[in-house]
Simulated assay, not measured.
Amino acid sequence: MQQQLPTSIVLEKVEMEAQPIPPKMQIDDLPDYLGKVFHFKFHGQAMEYFGIWIVNIVLTIATLSLYAPWAKVRRLRYFYNNTEFFDRFFDFTGLPTRILMGRLIALSIWGFFAVAGYLEMSVAAFGGVVIYLALPWLLRATLRFRSRNSKFGNSRFYFDGKTSEAYKLFFLGLVITFFSWGIFFPVVIWFYKRYVIDHLYVGQLKFKLNNSWTDYMTATLMPIVIYIAIIFVCSMFLVIGIASQTRMLLTSSGYLFGAALLFGIVFIIPLIHARIFITTWNSTTLGYSQFKTDCDQWRYAWIVASNWFVKILSVGLMTAWAEIRLYRYQVESLSIRLLDDPNKMRNIRQSDPNAIAEEISDIFDLDISL
């Protein structure tokens, strides 16, 4: 005798079979904006931001840095809220009170090592080693906090990198840098970029870095090699000028050598930063969508170098203008060929991390950014 199915299961099966099978989505049903290129926009203005910047400086000094968390939130919100993509704006949702608690703990740690180091130098050295060894943890915790409190439209960012992986890459980078005498330090930059980008999400869409360490070797070392070649050629002219004892030749070769040195001091580091920026974003995808940047490395380097001079000549008062100028160029050089629908993004459930690591990074001036 066959065993009969329960009546509830039979009815459920009949209902499922009665439901029409949805047709496959046709290409014509796809939104017309998919496959098109969309550019990022920045709407911030230097004079507008200057008001925020100068108030932040004054209140931070007046409150002995207790206002710093509110200053940070105001600054980040200004840049985020004025950055637009696909008719949506970014936002930073971190609470200044939570950041203040992290800052007080960070200041306590800094104060302990500062006072103890004043009494005993070995304690100061020990404190430096502790902070250095804590870098991977600081990196991961700061990225989690910053991502959790960043939004694109209604979709939150999310970072799922592990502390163990951060320490693995940290010590591997130390070994590579030490045994290569620093020549392979660009590999460490690649480790860092890959760790940050490959573990970052916005909504359910995952970022991915699709290049190799050789791209960062080329981006970093090529300007240095070219600069060394220029210095060598200029040095040869200088030697010829000295040997000939011709005043005109000696003067012109001296000016040429000085100009080459000045070029290296002013432009090499900004040029390397520009090439890393271009290499990173041109190799980054979000889901199936591809980032691209039309950033010109020489213009980027000029903006950074001229910002330095302007800030020095203005005794720091043009810092707000310089920040807006560089950020605008970076953002507006970026575009995405959109293959994922922004209207179908959904959030990943995540915990709310504390701000301790974020504030320790600030107190000890550790720049943790993409």
Rank of each mutant, 00 (worst) to 15 (best):
L370R: 08
I324K: 00
C234M: 12
S147L: 11
Y216V: 01
S150G: 07
T93I: 03
C234T: 10
N210T: 03
V266K: 04
W70G: 08
I109K: 03
T163V: 14
G35Q: 02
V115F: 14
I231Q: 05
V239W: 10
E332P: 02
Y80C: 07
G203I: 04
K206R: 15
L261D: 00
F89A: 09
W137Q: 06
L313V: 11
I368W: 10
Y49K: 04
F179V: 15
P20E: 10
Y192F: 11
G111P: 03
L313Q: 05
D29V: 02
F85Q: 06
T214C: 00
I240V: 12
D28I: 09
I105L: 15
G203N: 04
F364K: 09
I226T: 08
L317R: 01
Y288S: 10
Y192C: 00
A114L: 15
W308N: 03
L138W: 10
A106Q: 08
W181P: 00
V175W: 08
T319F: 04
H39M: 05
A141F: 09
L221S: 01
V310P: 01
V55F: 12
D340P: 08
P136E: 06
V304K: 03
R148T: 13
I105R: 09
I368P: 07
N347C: 09
F267P: 01
G128P: 09
T63P: 02
S65Y: 13
I131E: 09
D362S: 11
R328V: 04
R346Y: 12
F157C: 11
L339I: 00
T220A: 06
L250C: 00
S361K: 05
F267Y: 14
F207Y: 13
K208D: 07
L200M: 12
F112T: 12
F92R: 01
D367Q: 14
